[in-house]
């Protein structure tokens, strides 16, 4: 167990926690969940679903307006000054003193926590190297690109090895090396007994490092499940996208499509819908398959027989991003498999 996590128990425990903005708009919840030592939890969901509000609550940037929250085995109420040095929070946008150099900035922000907590902090140079910041160590923050400032923020957050990591959209603006360094650092923290909550819509990154997924929708938790279980649920849901030259005739609406081409009668083709092509200029026919790419030859044959010119075919294996369709209802392929959001 890591020295900073205290006794065993959930590092995050939210019970009926919610937040309402001054305008009366609900930002989050109520939600209930817990995160234990060693866990990496990813919060995903559409824009405005409450991910950043959730992280701000966990970072004690906001206080719950309903319910309760415990962090690192301490109930969040009254003064939270003692808790804060043990929470590493990287907000969704890099916020620095523009006139400090990168190295000075790390020394300052990491030093603020270290001076309160007396732990960690020996890994700044390693983190600089891992994130590719060595060459810009003496460059003023104002001259760094967005991606570099994002990396700097992550280094500042990770440098003191906090037991609880809260990262809001951490991969935005990061190059592959930076994403890899972040992934390793987060895993290292979890392995040391810490926990991480990451808000992101980078579902590929989430698939690689998350142990558990919290899917937020309209401020509520629609799904709280281990990553492996979710991927298992999505198994066998291959998507076949067939892009066509030009657009379909107006009378080829969904019903018409089904009756004319009978694409849904192709073995393995579960659902058929029309969509905009990848270049945004044409149309595409999207088929959800339960038999991988097996239905593809028959689908193509039927379309070609109708005289439709095909420009591109793409077969996509199921991924975490497909959850969006399932939960938000657009398109509805997976909705039958997934539970409804919990209700207050």
């Amino acid at each position: 167990m890591d020295a900073g996590t205290g006794r065993l128990g959930p590092l995050i425990l939210a019970e009926g926690m919610g937040y309402r903005y001054r305008s009366g708009r609900t930002g989050l919840g109520p939600v209930s969940f817990s995160v234990g030592p060693g866990e990496i939890v990813t919060a995903i969901g559409p824009n405005g679903s409450g991910k950043s509000t959730l992280l701000r609550l966990l970072a004690t940037d906001l206080r719950p307006t309903v319910g309760s929250l415990s962090l690192l085995n301490e109930r969040v109420r009254g003064s939270v000054r003692r808790l804060r040095p043990r929470i590493g929070y990287a907000p969704d946008s890099p916020r620095h003193f523009a006139h400090l150099t990168a190295r000075e900035s790390v020394r300052f922000f990491a030093g603020l926590r270290r001076s309160r907590d007396g732990r960690g902090g020996a890994c700044v140079s390693e983190l600089f190297a891992a994130f590719g910041l060595e060459e810009v160590g003496d460059v003023p923050v104002s001259e760094l690109s967005f991606g570099m400032r994002r990396k700097l923020l992550l280094v500042e957050t990770l440098a003191v090895r906090p037991p609880l990591l809260l990262l809001d959209e951490p991969t935005v603006g990061l190059d592959p090396a930076g994403t890899r360094a972040l992934e390793e650092a987060v895993r290292e923290r979890a392995a040391a007994g810490g926990a991480a909550m990451i808000a992101t819509n980078d579902t590929r990154a989430a698939s690689r490092w998350a142990h558990r997924i919290l899917f937020l929708h309209r401020g509520l938790i629609a799904i709280d499940a281990p990553l492996a279980e979710l991927l298992h649920r999505l198994e066998g849901k291959t998507t076949i996208e067939i892009e066509i030259d030009g657009t379909l005739r107006p009378d080829y609406d969904r019903e018409r499509t089904r009756s004319t081409w009978e694409l849904e009668t192709v073995p393995g083709a579960e659902s058929v819908r029309r969509a905009v092509s990848s270049d945004g200029r044409g149309e595409a026919i999207v088929v959800q398959s339960t038999r991988g790419s097996a239905p593809l030859p028959e689908l193509l044959t039927r379309l070609l027989t109708e005289g439709i010119s095909i420009t591109r075919v793409r077969v996509r294996e199921p991924e975490l991003g497909d959850l969006f369709h399932g939960v938000t209802g657009e398109p509805p392929e997976l909705s039958a498999d997934l539970p409804s959001p919990e209700r207050p």
Binding site: R81, R84, R95, F97, F109, L112, R116
Partner: peptide, 18 residues
């Protein structure tokens, strides 16, 4: 200005005594 650009909030959230 520092409230708008963010570093002041970061100092407070670090647990530095107000």
């Amino acid at each position: 200005r520092e409230a708008d650009t963010g570093p002041l909030r970061r100092i407070i959230l670090s647990g530095f005594p107000e």
